[in-house]
Design a protein around this nucleic acid. Structure first.
Lengths: 110, 110
DNA sequence: TAAATTAGTTTGTAATTTAAACTAAATTAA
DNA sequence: TTAATTTAGTTTAAATTACAAACTAATTTA
């Protein structure tokens, strides 16, 4: 089978989390939770999985008196996300005989 | 969260199965199994799930003396797959500031 | 006629998902 | 001032999913 889609990112919640961080580099736990409308429990587990894969790092600070959890995407996370996008585009483009194609050739990795 | 990706298709195996059928309309169980290198057990369960969602229909015949299971994509399956592709393209294109964009506008549904 | 092959289905375990329950501190209201 | 509520998370537990292994059942080959 086509095993090129990282199963860790083949998940609505984790794909969205990494996608958000891909754009913003780092975000607060609460920002992610609110933006994606995830429960805190779910987000907590998902970022732990992403951390375990070294796709993001978690920094615990304080914002005023409250604890604050910052998530930051790692170089490995960036590459994994770009690979996912590239592979998914490749897949969707293989149906361009009916669904208009993606012009993506090879991504520019920064 | 971005709840527009049908979780039934957000699976490597089921996405590939429906993708194959999207191209070929109907295929034998064994053809799908061999093409995607799935185990028979896994394929059996996955097509049952897809059937339950009315994304494909299963016809049981005989080919010579051996049983033959034909899988055929349904109109509902076609729409679901096209929607998945469209939504995934929309997602990936929202990262085109770095990853080249997909030109897909609105798909032509046949 | 025994062994191997074909074509699947069912089962059992492991992993995943996610809401609910919980911890722990801070803040607000009575 | 102390009780209730809010903030910010983590842990748990139940439900769902994934998938290989084991199984059924017939056919073909040696």
């Amino acid at each position: 089978m086509n095993k090129n889609l990282d199963p860790l990112l083949l998940s609505q919640s984790r794909l969205s989390i990494i996608g958000l961080l891909y754009k913003s580099n780092e975000l607060e736990f609460v920002q992610i939770k609110d933006t994606l409308k995830l429960t805190a429990g779910n987000l907590s587990t998902q970022i732990q999985k992403l951390k375990k894969a070294d796709f993001l790092e978690i920094e615990k600070k304080f914002k005023g008196n409250y604890p604050q959890t910052i998530c930051r995407i790692t170089p490995k996370g960036i590459i994994a996300f770009e690979d996912f996008i590239t592979n998914m585009n490749q897949f969707t483009n293989s149906f361009s005989f009916i669904i208009p194609a993606n012009t993506d050739t090879k991504q520019n990795r920064l």
